[in-house]
Design a protein around this nucleic acid. Structure first.
Lengths: 219, 219
DNA sequence: CCTAATAAACTGACCGTTTGGTATGTCAAC
DNA sequence: GTTGACATACCAAACGGTCAGTTTATTAGG
């Protein structure tokens, strides 16, 4: 029992070891993320999720109501993590070409670093984005497009970029490549007999994406 | 019972209405393709597949042994259809730039026209390409890369293209975009509040992909 | 400071249904 | 009459979900 007597309301972040609702919730959410990422919504078993935790299956229903409820929570968290990673960088201080390089590279890196999220999004697409449709995406939508647009606009203003590509199209292109590179590594790697996780190969394709997007944007 | 007495072995394509093994197999395969495309390997129910046919669940096990066996057959057929559609065009008679345009556009079109195959491949990736790994892809691998390489080489020889992009990289870029455009239409469309199936939008993005790849390749 | 009441956190056994898969037997074609 | 094509009825296991009850933390009253 350490020093934890905080004055006022909401004594957040108690760490009582046992009977810690937040910790239990988090533990379930983490285990569920792994399981859903591995097997998708339909392949995942709530019994297996429970087995990955120190608690029991009943706690899942206690906190999340249903398998779908748990999945929604996992999906929301996955989106959130992706969001913040994508938006963590500030490009305003860089010259347009450098900013573009960084934007593309960072987008690729975030995808590469979050294969679990990619797999959950694949599962979500197989399910026609049933859960994602119930979420609010207006914040993310606005932020990433604004950041992209600002770079493109600055490039155009300085006579460095062509003006015939908009932020959404740009974002679609780099997201598509990055997503596919991680999400389809197994089938693509199998068909073309290559190791899509090979460090050198990844680095080359990362550079390739940057090169391609620069070619596309440059005046 | 029409004229069907063929001489020699393999009297292919008999249409006996009842007790037609080939027709039953095909019917099951078709129903299974739909079901697997809709719900993925894990979401699909063999009972539901049987219900989509005029025959019974038992016939699935009679012909395909197991759910996995059926899925493998569906996957193989999906790959085959994709393959032949991708390789149907002959680019040798066109000038390099036109050939490239057609190659990219055709790749995009084939993806757009086969959302079922895309979804099955997504499911297959979620399952780490477990079934695809057991198949032989050497034919497809060689053909598509050869076709691409021939166009690129001709462009370089004529001084139209840069020489710093290889066929695999090129193929990866256009496959990624095309695949993502169809496979992730639900989540991407939801997040950015757009209809990814809108005819005009599709056409614009198709053109964009062609433009981008031309920018990348042009000298 | 102690105690009893209350609410929240938690447990493990249990339930009805669904699911992939099978056993048994019939029927048509050669 | 043998063989391949096909039905029907069925099963054991797995599955999402629930029930009835226990333990712990918090707090109000003494």
């Amino acid at each position: 029992m350490g020093v934890e007597a905080s004055i006022g309301r909401a004594p957040r972040r108690r760490r009582n070891k046992v009977r810690d609702a937040d910790a239990t919730r988090d533990e379930i959410l983490l285990a569920a993320t792994e399981e859903f990422a591995e097997k998708g919504l339909f392949g995942a078993r709530v019994e297996e999720i429970a087995a990955r935790t120190a608690t029991s299956k009943h706690m899942i229903y206690y906190y999340f109501g249903s398998k779908d409820g748990l999945y929604s929570a996992v999906l929301e968290r996955a989106y959130e993590g992706f969001r913040s990673a994508e938006n963590a960088v500030d490009y305003d201080l860089l010259e347009p070409v450098e900013a573009l390089r960084l934007l593309v590279g960072n987008t690729f890196d975030v995808h590469l670093a979050n294969p679990d999220t990619i797999r959950i999004l694949m599962s979500e697409n197989l399910d026609n984005a049933r859960h994602a449709k119930a979420m609010d995406h207006s914040g993310q939508r606005h932020l990433v497009l604004t950041k992209t647009k600002r770079i493109l606009d600055r490039g155009v203003a300085e006579g460095l970029f062509r003006s015939d590509i908009d932020a959404l199209t740009f974002h679609l292109l780099i997201s598509a490549f990055s997503f596919f590179f991680v999400g389809n590594r197994h089938t693509f790697g199998t068909v073309f007999a290559i190791d899509m996780t090979d460090k050198d190969f990844v680095e080359r394709q990362r550079e390739e994406l940057i090169t391609t997007m620069l070619c596309r944007c440059r005046a």
